[in-house]
């Protein structure tokens, strides 16, 4: 395991913790897309089914378990405990526009036509677009709380670090996974516009608001 991979996982974990702490402390999930969080819960569930079939390392098992827990607790806080603060009106992205193409593609383009492999592929494709309802919500309301932008920053950083990890692994182990790499590039591109706004506005102490 290389430094990019570890830092990528830490960024990913940090993003999820930032979101949980934000919701918990403010007792509100205003500005958070419940749909994106449901998609992430589906992503982890369909990807980590190998918890039951393969053992890689203690690290791998523990992290998968923690990621699953974070995702489910977040969904519970949004649709359960703090549902009164949930901005249903602006969380209006049509999920079928993501789920139908992603499902179709995972059946067409995978490494082997087996249930676990198709579900893994589905989770990779879905992860690359799962943030779109959140970005759509921000573009619709025209603003995001600073803490929400920190969440998005660390989530985007995780994707960028994983790209570096794959370049490293390709150079040192000659390993690459085409499905993961292509999806990883796609999702990192989605964050570029946001990264620009984050650096030019949020880091200079301004709130992220769109003209």
């Amino acid at each position: 395991m290389n430094i990019f991979r570890i830092l990528g996982d830490v960024s990913h974990l940090l993003a999820m913790i930032i979101l949980l702490v934000k919701i918990w402390r403010s007792k509100s999930c205003a500005g958070i897309s419940g749909k994106s969080q449901v998609l992430f819960a589906i992503v982890f569930t369909s990807r980590y089914l190998d918890l039951f079939t393969n053992f890689f390392s203690i690290y791998n098992t523990v992290m998968k378990f923690v990621f699953l827990m974070c995702a489910y607790i977040t969904v519970y806080l949004i649709y359960g405990k703090f549902r009164k603060t949930f901005d249903n009106e602006n969380d209006s992205f049509r999920l079928e526009f993501l789920l139908i193409p992603v499902t179709g593609l995972s059946f067409l383009e995978n490494q082997s036509f087996t249930p676990l492999e198709i579900l893994w592929t589905f989770s990779i494709y879905l992860e690359s677009v799962a943030i779109l309802p959140q970005l759509f919500m921000i573009s619709k309301t025209g603003e995001a709380e600073t803490i929400t932008t920190h969440y998005l920053f660390f989530l985007g950083l995780y994707h960028a670090l994983y790209l570096a990890n794959w370049i490293w692994r390709y150079q040192t182990e000659n390993y690459y996974d085409q499905i993961a790499v292509v999806s990883g590039v796609v999702q990192t591109i989605f964050y570029c516009d946001f990264f620009y706004l984050y650096v030019t506005k949020v880091l200079k102490g301004k709130k992220l608001s769109l003209p």
């Binding site: 991979r5 996982d9 990913h12 190998d50 393969n54 890689f56 390392s57 791998n60 992290m63 998968k64 990621f67 490494q111 082997s112 087996t114 676990l116 492999e117 893994w120 994983y162 990890n165 390993y175 690459y176 996974d177 085409q178 993961a180």
Partner: peptide, 10 residues
């Protein structure tokens, strides 16, 4: 490329 049993990444 990794197979189903070689996916150690998260």
């Amino acid at each position: 490329a990794g197979s189903a049993s070689g996916k150690d990444e998260l």
